[in-house]
Design a protein around this nucleic acid. Structure first.
Lengths: 185, 185
DNA sequence: GTCTATACGACGATAGAC
DNA sequence: GTCTATCGTCGTATAGAC
C-alpha cells in the first residue's frame, strides 16, 4: 500500500514533534518515538535514513503545516516567534539542528539554507516596499536589513534558552518598532 | 600533587577545545579527547563530572583566556564575533551548549546565564554613556538595546552555520553602524 | 590525588526473515 | 512494511593500583 505508508510517516513525524517538544533534543531517543507509535526502532527507520533525518523532516513538516509569511512580513514573523514561546522543546530542536547543520553532509543543511534564503527574500522585498512608501530610510540595504531581522529573531531564542526574564519576541520588537520606527501593530 | 593536576586539567581543556573545533560538537567523543591526552576515559573523568561539564569548562576557559569587553563595548564585541569565524567548531559548540543549557540542571545553565548578564550590563552601561553624549536617542531603553545587540551577534552565528555567503559580523555591523548610526571604527 | 581496568545499559544503525 | 537479532560506540560508574 502507498497511502498507508504516507500516513504512518506523518504520524511518526507528529509523534516525534510532540516527544521532542516535551523532552527536548538530547532527552529523547528513537526508541521513545517508536514506542509511542506502536513500532520498533527498525520500523521507524524504514521511513527515515537516520535519526538526524527524522529530526530534519520534523521541522520540514512544521514549516509546511504552519502559516507562510507573506504580507507584513516582520509582523507575522514576530507572531511566529512569540508562538514558539509555548514550545521550548521545539526551539531547542531548531537551535540544535542548526548547529549540527553546519556540517554540509547533515540532512538539515540544505533544508535550513533554503529556509533562510526564502525568509530573506520575503523580508527583503518587504523592506523595499516600505522604503518606497517612505516608512524606512532608503539608504539601508534591504538584504542586510533582512539578515539583521532574521539574526535578531534567532538570537533572541538563544538568550531565551538561558534567561527566564527574557521575552522571546523582545529583541525583535525593539528592533522593528523602537529602532527602525515601524508602526506598532 | 596539586599543581600537576591543575596543569593536566588545563591540558585536557585545551585538547578538548582543539578536538571540538576540528570535529564539531556531535562528532567527537570522550575517548577521542582522552586518547589525545594520553589518558583513558576514566582518567579524563577524574577532572570533570560529565561530558557536558567538560564542554562547559571548555567555554569557561575560553572566556578566561580571551580579552574582556570593557571600553567601546560594541566594537570589541564585533571583533570577538569576527574572530570566531576562524573556529567554526567553537561556534557550533557554543550554540549546541546553549540549546542544551535550556535544561536548568545542565552545568552550562548557570555559566551562560552569568555570561549573558555580564555582557548585558556592560553593553547597557555603554548605551547610557552614548545617550548622554548625544550619540544615541534618549528614548531607547538601554537594557532592551543591550539585549538586541546580543541577539544580533548570536543570531548571526546561526545564519552563518548554514549560509556560506553570510558574514559572521555582518548583521551586527548593520545594526550598529547603519541602523543605530554609531561612528564606524 | 592521579589514574587504569573493567563492566554496564542505552543508543543509532544494519541485515535478513516474514 | 514491520519485525527480531545483532553490532559497535557511546557516556557513565565503580573498584582499586600507585
Amino acid at each position: 500500500m502507498y497511502a498507508k505508508g504516507r500516513l504512518k510517516r506523518e504520524e511518526i513525524l507528529d509523534v516525534a514533534l510532540e516527544v521532542f517538544a516535551d523532552e527536548g533534543y538530547r532527552g529523547t531517543s528513537l526508541r521513545t518515538v517508536a514506542a509511542r507509535c506502536g513500532l520498533t526502532v527498525a520500523g521507524v527507520m524504514h521511513y527515515f535514513d537516520s535519526r538526524e533525518d527524522l529530526l530534519t523532516q520534523v521541522i520540514v513538516r512544521r514549516d509546511q503545516t504552519g502559516r507562510p509569511i507573506y504580507h507584513d512580513a516582520p509582523r507575522t514573523l514576530a507572531e511566529n516567534v512569540k508562538g514558539n514561546a509555548e514550545r521550548p522543546g521545539l526551539v531547542e530542536l531548531f537551535v540544535s539542528l542548526t548547529a549540527a547543520a553546519h556540517d554540509r553532509e547533515h540532512p538539515a543543511h540544505e533544508v535550513l539554507a533554503h529556509r533562510y534564503a526564502g525568509l530573506r527574500a520575503t523580508l527583503s522585498a518587504d523592506v523595499v516596499e516600505r522604503q518606497e512608501a517612505g516608512e524606512l530610510p532608503s539608504h539601508l540595504d534591504p538584504d542586510a536589513i533582512a539578515r539583521l531581522i532574521i539574526a535578531t529573531a534567532d538570537g533572541a531564542q538563544l538568550q531565551w534558552m538561558v534567561d527566564d526574564e527574557a521575552r522571546l519576541e523582545g529583541p525583535l520588537s525593539t528592533l522593528l518598532y523602537d529602532v527602525l520606527g515601524l508602526p506598532r501593530p
